[in-house]
Design a binder for these strands. Structure first.
Lengths: 111, 111
DNA sequence: CTGAATCCAGATGGATACTG
DNA sequence: CAGTATCCATCTGGATTCAG
């Protein structure tokens, strides 16, 4: 089941989960290299899949806040596992030893 | 870290892990809808990433056997988790209740 | 049987400009 | 600020054919 396709979904989820709530432009900065066009599209898909919740704040100018739904949170464990495996894998492939594994929310996830 | 991109990798790994060892044409049958071109390509990538091991059997005509490497096996847990989450997710989205979750190796994984 | 080669349609995604 | 629209290059993957 890949409601997770697209190049950025995991990074986006990580960004949001890391802060709890996050604005559009914040995510735009967090996720290196993504364009607003893509971010908009991916967020929309995540919203349709009920993984993130979108809230329009009545500020001036308007801001929009994104947060993980309860359901989205159930993904965190899996993403952590993936990230952890990814680290081990990278080291395996590049032939380095695994010194330490950190999978805090702040860690950048390579895609 | 996506050494897992491509439409079929997870299905292929599932097929192999399910039987331990699997020939090219067997996988071709297991994974519904894949073409030999894709299977060939995806297997090659998996091999490069040291997730599967390729063995040429000296039969007539030649057959090739694929099996998961030790490293590939470490992915099984994660894939199971993903599959399990996928089932829950599907039911969530379609609004059905989750009756039971089976994540045996025989289960088909929807991609 | 395994798998490489070619052809080609459609999806993906970057850059940029524009709107409310 | 948040998003949409357009243009366009590249990537993906299916069908088919060929080769060892």
């Amino acid at each position: 089941m890949y409601a997770l396709n697209g190049k950025w979904k995991i990074s986006i989820i990580s960004s949001i989960c890391c802060f709890g709530k996050r604005r559009f432009s914040d995510i735009l900065n967090d996720v290196e290299g993504i364009s607003n066009r893509m971010l908009s599209k991916e967020l929309k898909e995540l919203e349709i899949n009920q993984l993130v919740k979108r809230t329009i704040l009545d500020t001036q100018p308007i801001t929009v806040q994104y947060e993980l739904t309860e359901h989205g949170n159930t993904l965190q464990t899996i993403i952590s596992n993936l990230a952890e495996w990814g680290v081990v894998h990278r080291n395996k492939i590049t032939g380095k030893k695994v010194e330490s594994i950190e999978t805090s929310c702040n860690e950048k996830i390579d895609v």
